[in-house]
Amino acid sequence: MQKVMEQSPQSATGTRPPPSSLGKVGLSRLNDIGPTLVVVAILALAMQLGSYVLPPFVMPAPLTILAATWEILSTQMSHIGVTALRLFVAVVFAMTVGVLLGVVMGVIPRVRPYLQALVIIDTGIPALSWMLLAIFWFSEPEIRIFFILSVILIPFYALNIYDAIRALPRDWVDMIESFRPHRWQVLRYLVAPHIVPAIITTTKAVIGYAIRMAIFAELVASAIGIGSRMSLAQSMFRIDLVLGWTLILVIFNLGLQALINASEKLLLKWRPETKVR
């Protein structure tokens, strides 16, 4: 048998290149968060200057906002937990149903036009309409919020997964069909792994929107959760609390994005990162 003459793109010996040094990793992270810190510092400075010339109920000083944030964190964590739980349940449900709808649209041509029409009609209905309808239809606040978030998020998953299946390379389908698989085997070995990046991308894209919708839904349809607390703070003219809740929501969103990015790195470790010069 002849020796392998080809070499892998990574190295001639087959060993992988050494990982980056700790110093380089640290520097890279600093490069990533550096601009964010600069923007935060500029905003804090602008708010501080604004607090000198504007009344406290318009622009409180950053330290006042931090004090309000601490007040929230030390007394109202349960509301953050409730919102997080509502969001988690609704996103997981919307992801499950949306992915199923997308897969059905992708692999069953007979059903596709009907589901596609349903999903597209859904995307055309404003979020506010769903909120008002939920208030009419359901008396239980949890069901209202779950319903609102689900009907808003499901189409994003369904359409993106359908698009991902449409983009499945014909070559891969021919390859797997050359083994004469059962239909579920095509789904398991080809379709399911292929749509994982689309699920992650969709989650990254909708999570910020989902948080905003959850807060808005809580504002109109519930007495507990961050949205209802923000409404209460507004009615008490506590702008420091409103801004404190806002700060918490920004951090909450960044935390979720970081969690999704970590999941992406774990689930898509097979995908090389391409850097464009």
Partner: peptide, 22 residues
């Protein structure tokens, strides 16, 4: 089609390897 399951295999012009598998 299904009766030839396991009886033939194909290697194509391009490798057609699935990138998420080692």
């Amino acid at each position: 089609f299904i009766k030839l399951r396991g009886k033939m295999a194909v290697s194509f012009q391009t490798d057609r390897l699935l990138p998420w598998r080692t």
